[in-house]
Write a protein that binds this DNA or RNA. Sequence first.
DNA 1: CTAATTTGTTAGTTAAGACTAACTTAATAC
DNA 2: GTATTAAGTTAGTCTTAACTAACAAATTAG
Lengths: 218, 218
Amino acid sequence: MHSLVEENYLKALFALSKDKGSVSVNDLSKHLNIKMPTVTNMMKKMAFKKLVYYESYKPLILTKKGKKEAALIIRKHRLTEMYLVEKMGFGWEEVHNIAEQIEHIKSPKLFAKMAELLDYPKFDPHGAPIPDINGEMEWKAYSKLSECKPDDMVKIAAVINTTDEFLKFLNRREIHLGLKIKIKSVEPFDNSMVVKYKNHLEETLSNTVCKRLLVEKF
Amino acid sequence: MHSLVEENYLKALFALSKDKGSVSVNDLSKHLNIKMPTVTNMMKKMAFKKLVYYESYKPLILTKKGKKEAALIIRKHRLTEMYLVEKMGFGWEEVHNIAEQIEHIKSPKLFAKMAELLDYPKFDPHGAPIPDINGEMEWKAYSKLSECKPDDMVKIAAVINTTDEFLKFLNRREIHLGLKIKIKSVEPFDNSMVVKYKNHLEETLSNTVCKRLLVEKF
DNA sequence: CTAATTTGTTAGTTAAGACTAACTTAATAC
DNA sequence: GTATTAAGTTAGTCTTAACTAACAAATTAG
Ligand SMILES: [Mn+2]
Ligand SMILES: [Mn+2]
Ligand SMILES: [Mn+2]
Ligand SMILES: [Mn+2]
């Protein structure tokens, strides 16, 4: 088994390599708030464990094994978040920090039970996909709300770059997963949007907000 | 806050000082499976933090602060066990190892929620009392089944020195908390008991077993 | 009461995982 | 194409929490 520390490196590598497929020592260092020499050291250790490909001065790449183990930790994280929201009554803005700890619990049975009680959920409370027991996961082809046009009718499918503050902001605006939104207009100078939903007939959302909302058109 | 390691020392000190009120370095060392010099070192560190009274060659005594913090960890442990059994469908023999990990989670809200959902339980699945939010707890005046006499009618109130194996043994015999038992006879040479309960009309329980079962007479 | 045994302490070592300082390689700017 | 800046590595240090070996104190036995 891996230490809690290694597990957090794995998750960070996985998250950061989303697009390019590789990560720089610098990025990883910043993401984890750990100085670069410490990261270099840990990468050598994890390379020895076949979790990551490491060569001096080259980008870091997760091995197949590393990717799978990362995905399984993310599975535990997202199952936990879903469990806390669905079965214990937490708000979606409260669960990340608890899941950050519980994801390291060693008990396949606990997470199997969560999955069972939740009826094998496919998404976490923020709309992110929950990897299956083999670490397989795929993001659906969502668009960002910021890329939509006036008169588009969309449904909120996921929230990205979620901080507690951002989620509390959405709570105050009564914006949640599954919400149907109509785009009334887009301000050309700051790309903010005026949208309509439920009993909010004219709500303005900044581009910062719109870039963090993934939507499905319908 | 304290480290996971310190928390485990606190729990061990609390558990071992049940009777005498103090613990030897040797006992603590054996209980935690940690060599004596390591324990001595840790006691000095915890004495500095005012968790334990420590003087060379004297028995270890928890401070009021140490006792309270230990009790609050035990509260988290027992709430978790109760939650796993009552809300997630685990057997009483499956929950200890999970609780051993979850007791270290830093989230007052998680445990507040468990307590609320369980309707502020007073006992864990093994009959042990759950300390309140101030770390207060008291064992009721139970007797050991081994100390009962023929023809006594008793109710199983708690199980002590619980190992998974012992609990599985009780499962096979259909012995559980709340079960009403009649003592038919006691074998004088090995103190084993012949008892009657439910549809078990003549079950023999060894003294080892009877010493681990706490009962209420009625 | 002394001897043997058990218990406890001191000193020194180790591994994990962090850090800083100094140096090297790679990337970017001019 | 050299100079500057940014990124990455090496070497050495620190803290936590473990260990062993050696010694000292306390307890128990005869
Ligand atoms: Mn999360
Ligand atoms: Mn984590
Ligand atoms: Mn337990
Ligand atoms: Mn524990």
